[in-house]
Design a binder for these strands. Structure first.
Lengths: 236, 236
DNA sequence: CGGAAACTTGAAACCTTTCAAGAGTCGTGG
DNA sequence: CCACGACTCTTGAAAGGTTTCAAGTTTCCG
C-alpha cells in the first residue's frame, strides 16, 4: 500500500464520494464546515450492527466503503430487509424524528463509515442552515425513492430480480465499480426477503437466467452476460 | 353555518390539526412565524390535480380537509398509487430534492390545503432553522414510514386488505372521525393499485368479509362490524 | 332515462410457495 | 492440509391462491 496516500487524512474535503454524499452541491466553505463536524472512518466487520432498531438516535451515517443491509422487525415480529446500502449513501434518517432507530443497519462485509453525531447535527441545524437544507433535500430524495420504487411489487419474480440486478449494476457503476461483474453481498435468503420471494425461487431464477446465458452465476459472483435480454425481462 | 366561526381566519395558530401538521412540537412564536409564511386554504375538487408529476416544485402542502391520492408513473409507463393522504398530512417532499415533482397528487373529494411556497421555504431555511428542523423531522418520519410499511408485501391478499382497513380506521380516528364507519374515497381500481392486487380480488374479498359479517360493505361505505376478527386476519 | 363506467361473480390458467431431499460451500479444529 | 459439520444453495413435485378472461349487474351522471 502506498504509505503517502495511507497517511493522508481522509475527510469530506477530499473524499472521492463527494458527488454522492452530503457535500453534493455545497460550497467549499460549507464542505469544510461539514467536515469539521463529521467523525470520519469508523470500521466495522461483516455481520456487525452499525446501529440496532430501538437504539437511541446514533447519528447520520455515510457509508464510505463496503455495503450494509437495513432490517426492520414489524409489530408481528417479521423481519424485513428494506434496503441494500452502497458507498456514498446516507442512513440513519430512521432515528431522526423519534430519536430512536426504527431499523437496524448491518454490515454485509467490512464497512467504513463517517458519522454526523446527534450533537453535531444540532450544531449544524442552528449554525449552518445551508447544510441542514442539504440534509433535508437528501431525506426528501429518500422518500421519493422509497415511494417510487416499492421494489416489492407483485410483479413476476423474474422481472423483480432483473430489475434488482440492473439497478444494482447502475449503482455500482456510478460508484466506479464494474457494471457487468460484481459480488452479491446479500445471500439468497436476504435477497428473497428484499424482493419478497423465497430463497428457492431466487435460486431457480438464477439457474434459469444462467442456463439462458443472460447472466453467469457462481455463488455470489454475478456477471451480466446479456444486458439487453436482462432489460427485456425487467420490462416484460 | 355559524357565521362568526366562518369569518374567523383559519391559520396555523388556531388550526385543529396542529398536533399532526408542521406546528407539532413548535413554540407559539415559531407557529406564528410559520403561519406568516403559509398560504392557507386553497380549495380543489374531486379529480383535480394538486400538482402533477414533472411540475416544478410547487411547495410543501398540508391537507386540511378531504383526501388525496399520490400517483407516480414509472419509467415503463405503469401508474402506481403510492399513498392515500388524509387531513393533517404533508405532501410535496417529492419535489424538494429535484425541484420537480416525482409524483402527482390528485384530490379524491373536495380538498382544502395550506401551502408553504418554494420561496417561503427558502425564507424559512435561512431565518428559522427550528422550523426547517421540524420539516426535516417530518421528512425523516415519512422515510421511516414508507420503508417500514411497504403495504404491498407479498402477503395474503386478505391480510393486506385487513391491514389497510385497520390502518385507515386508526388514522381516521386520530383525526376525529369514526373508526368504525367511513367512506372509502378510493375506488376498487385505486385500492387494487395501492395493495398490488386486481380489482376483482378486492371485490371478492369485500364480498367474503361481508358474508362473514366482519365488515359491512355498501359501495364505498364501509363499516367495521367485528374488528377483533379483522385484526386476526390482519395478523394471520 | 340511457349509456358508460364501476363493480361483482364464475371458471380456468399460471406462477410462486411449500415441503422435501440432495449437493455444494465455508470455516474450524485436529 | 484435510476432514467434519453446519449452513447455504439447488432442484423436484405437489398444492394453493391470485390473476386472467369473460359476462352479467349495479351505480353514477349528464
Amino acid at each position: 500500500m502506498n504509505s503517502v496516500l495511507a497517511n493522508l487524512k481522509i475527510d469530506c474535503t477530499n473524499c472521492r464520494l463527494q458527488h454522492l454524499c452530503i457535500p453534493r452541491g455545497l460550497s467549499k466553505q460549507d464542505i469544510q464546515n461539514l467536515s469539521d463536524l463529521v467523525q470520519n472512518d469508523t470500521l466495522v466487520h461483516k455481520g456487525d450492527f452499525i446501529y440496532r432498531q430501538g437504539d437511541d438516535f446514533y447519528g447520520l451515517i455515510a457509508i464510505s466503503a463496503g455495503s450494509a443491509k437495513m432490517l426492520s422487525t414489524d409489530s408481528e415480529g417479521n423481519e424485513n430487509l428494506t434496503n441494500l446500502v452502497l458507498p456514498g449513501e446516507l442512513i440513519g434518517f430512521d432515528g431522526v424524528a423519534t430519536k430512536a432507530h426504527q431499523c437496524s443497519a448491518v454490515a454485509l462485509e467490512t464497512v467504513n463509515y463517517c458519522k454526523l453525531n446527534p450533537a453535531e447535527l444540532d450544531v449544524l441545524c442552528n449554525q449552518f442552515p445551508s447544510l441542514l437544507r442539504e440534509l433535508f433535500s437528501h431525506s426528501c430524495e429518500a422518500i421519493t425513492e422509497s415511494q417510487r420504487n416499492p421494489g416489492h411489487k407483485n410483479q413476476a419474480a423474474s422481472k423483480k430480480l432483473a430489475q434488482f440486478l440492473l439497478a444494482l449494476s447502475n449503482r455500482l457503476m456510478s460508484r466506479g465499480f464494474s457494471a457487468t461483474e460484481f459480488n452479491l453481498t446479500l445471500n439468497r435468503q436476504d435477497l428473497a426477503l428484499y424482493l419478497n420471494l423465497t430463497p428457492e425461487t431466487i435460486s431457480r431464477l438464477f439457474s434459469k437466467l444462467h442456463k439462458e446465458k443472460i447472466i453467469s452465476v457462481t455463488g455470489k459472483n454475478i456477471q451480466i452476460v446479456n444486458s439487453e435480454k436482462l432489460k427485456i425481462i425487467a420490462t416484460e
